[in-house]
Structures are given as structure tokens and as C-alpha cells.
């Protein structure tokens, strides 16, 4: 409040951080490039979930379903019809977002009515439906083995090169971040926050809260589908592992770890979780203790996520600086 430049400063910090990722990554080892690419893809998934969890207050336990839909669509088109391996890659991107949105539109019919714990459970069940099909519907999904993709698309720009692919994924990430930032700042986004804070009041004010939540659900599904298309090409393999419960739960952790309702927090959380899962696991056999520990410690000690740390530090400093003033104010207000 006292600092009118806060939004601009935040923008500068986020911009600088993204620029650093963009500039430093190409000069890192080839393994780091792959790792950052994966993190960026999961960042898109985490941000899509943040629209639901952070802005609308809907904790979905099935976000991996849309990742899976986008991924399987990409893999099936590529292996069966050789579609999406040249410029048609862009068509597949659009189709991936469309199938994510369509799946969410269908799932939303069941899920949106539920609230709180029931929403958690129904999204869990919906996610398991997708997993069940991926795991068992051998003739379409390849069952347990999944589908191995051909080399990445080539449309003048060769995505097979990991660095080139990194730039493209970075572009998608940036575009998603910008679009979602505009979305949550729009009147529609503000009413989502209103629903999160007090749905009944919003309904009394005349908002169709069901429709608002439904549309947010569909948008989140679309970005989840986009993440799926990119993930299929990044990983080169789509399998039921991508849609297991743990993937959905990890997406939730990314958002909560970074800070719900901040978008970039989800991206930060994605970076950390991917680093733990894919990098630390190659270094030490006990990496899961770290992952589990991060879950437990975040929940216990950092309910606002990493993005809330600067605010906490500021408050703590203000408190220790003006402890006397605070105290007298506090006693006056009581």
C-alpha cells in the first residue's frame, strides 16, 4: 500500500529471473537444458492449476488428466498418422489445447457442483478414469508400455535439437504466463477471486458462480493440454506414468510450494519439484526423503509458499523496527 511501485518492481524481478533462465540455460550442460525444458513444461501445468486452486479456490487432484490427454493425442497422431511432425505441429498444439478444454468441459459437468473435500475426491476419481483408460486400453494407448514418439517435429526449425526445443518451450511458457496473467487481472479473473473469498456473496450479487468456475476449469484444462503436447515431445514417451495420481499431486505441491494465487509461484515450485525428481534422484538414492520433507515442511511452516517469504521478511523487519509502536497500536485496537 505504502509502495505504489510494488507491482512494477515485482514485474522487474520476474522479468529479470526469466531473462536469466533464458540467457544462462544455453550455456549450461546439455542435461541442464533438458531439465529446464521439463521444468518449464510443468510450470505451464502448475500455473494452469493455480488458476483453479489459487484464484478460484478449487483444489483439483486430477490436473494430470489434461496433461495425459494432450500427450496421448500428440503421440497417437504422430505414430499412427505421422501428423504433427512438420508445420502441422502447430495444429497439434491447437488440438492439444482443444482436447484439454473439451475434457475439462466434460469433467466440469460432474466436478464443479462439488466443493471442498468432495471436489478433491471427484477430481481424483476423474483423473483415475483417464489413468484407467491409459493403462488398460491397449489398442489405443499401448497400455503399460505407453507410446514412443518419433523424433521431434521439423518445420524449418528443428525441434530435435534440445536447445532449439528449449527456446520454443520457453516461448510457450512465456505466452502462457502472459495470457494467464491477463486473465487473472481481468474482470473475469477478479470475480474468480471473489468466488474464492465468498461464493455466496458473489451469487447474491448476481454472478453466475457455477459458470465462472466452469469456464476457469475449462481454461485450466486447455493449458494442461498444451503442457501435455510439449511433454510428449520433450520426453519422447507417453505412458500411464504421466497420468498417475502422483503427477496430479505433484502439480498441487508445485503450486502450494511456490505460493497459490501468484502464477509465477507455481513456475518456481515446478522448477524445484522437477529438480528434486529428475536431478537429485540421479545423485542420491534417498532423494524421496527430500521430496517428502519438502511436502511436510512447506505445509507446516510455509502456508503461503515461497512467494510469501519477502512479505514475511518485510513484516518481520517492520515489527522488530517499530516493535514499540506496533504494540501500542495493538493494545489500542483491542
Amino acid at each position: 500500500m505504502k509502495d505504489g511501485h510494488a507491482p512494477r518492481r515485482k514485474l522487474l524481478i520476474v522479468g529479470a529471473a526469466l531473462l536469466a533462465v533464458l540467457v544462462i540455460t544455453p550455456f549450461s550442460g546439455s542435461y541442464v537444458i533438458v531439465l529446464v525444458t521439463h521444468a518449464l513444461i510443468f510450470a505451464i501445468l502448475a500455473m494452469s492449476l493455480d488458476i483453479l486452486l489459487g484464484y478460484t479456490g478449487l483444489p483439483s487432484l486430477g490436473q494430470a488428466a489434461y496433461l495425459g490427454m494432450g500427450g496421448y493425442l500428440t503421440a497417437i497422431l504422430a505414430t499412427r498418422y505421422q501428423f504433427g511432425l512438420d508445420w502441422t505441429f502447430w495444429v497439434v498444439v491447437a488440438l492439444g489445447m482443444l482436447i484439454g478444454a473439451a475434457t475439462a468441459a466434460f469433467f466440469g459437468l460432474f466436478a464443479i457442483r462439488a466443493t471442498g473435500v468432495y471436489f478433491l475426491m471427484i477430481t481424483l476419481a476423474l483423473g483415475m478414469c483417464v489413468w484407467g483408460l491409459a493403462y488398460r486400453w491397449n489398442s489405443v494407448t499401448g497400455g503399460d508400455n505407453g507410446i514412443v514418439l518419433p523424433p521431434r517435429p521439423d518445420f524449418g526449425i528443428q525441434l530435435a535439437d534440445d536447445l532449439t526445443f528449449f527456446y520454443v518451450v520457453f516461448g510457450f511458457f512465456l505466452a502462457s504466463l502472459v495470457m494467464m496473467t491477463i486473465l487473472v487481472g481481468s474482470p473475469f479473473g477478479r470475480s474468480l477471486v471473489g468466488i474464492r473469498e465468498n461464493e455466496l456473496r458473489m451469487r447474491i450479487l448476481g454472478y453466475n458462480t457455477w459458470l465462472h468456475k466452469y469456464i476457469a476449469f475449462i481454461i485450466a484444462g486447455a493449458f494442461g493440454g498444451l503442457a501435455g503436447v510439449l511433454w510428449a515431445h520433450a520426453h519422447g514417451l507417453v505412458s500411464p506414468e504421466d497420468v498417475i495420481l502422483a503427477t496430479s499431486v505433484d502439480a498441487l505441491l508445485m503450486v502450494v510450494l511456490g505460493g497459490p494465487g501468484t502464477l509465477v509461484g507455481g513456475a518456481l515450485g515446478a522448477g524445484i519439484v522437477v529438480a528434486l525428481r529428475e536431478y537429485l534422484s540421479t545423485l542420491v538414492p534417498w532423494w524421496q526423503y527430500v521430496l517428502g520433507g519438502v511436502y511436510v515442511l512447506t505445509i507446516l511452516y510455509l502456508p503461503g509458499g515461497l512467494m510469501s517469504i519477502p512479505e514475511r521478511v518485510r513484516r518481520w523487519r517492520a515489527q522488530s523496527r517499530g516493535a514499540g509502536v506496533e504494540k501500542s497500536l495493538e493494545s489500542a485496537s483491542h
Binding site: 486452486l53 483444489p59 487432484l61 471442498g116 473435500v117 478433491l120 499431486v249 498441487l252 505441491l253 502450494v256 534417498w286 524421496q288 526423503y289 521430496l291 517428502g292 520433507g293 519438502v294 511436502y295 511436510v296 512447506t298 505445509i299 507446516l300 502456508p303
Partner: peptide, 18 residues
């Protein structure tokens, strides 16, 4: 707090797994 409880139990599931 349903969400935090769920994530906490997941954390434990991972710790137990390891």
C-alpha cells in the same frame, strides 16, 4: 484445512515409500 492435510499425508506417503 483439506488441501494442506492432503498434501501432508502425501508427504508422509513419500517418506514411508523411501
Amino acid at each position: 484445512d483439506p488441501l494442506r492435510q492432503v498434501l501432508l499425508t502425501v508427504g508422509f506417503a513419500y517418506l514411508f515409500q523411501q
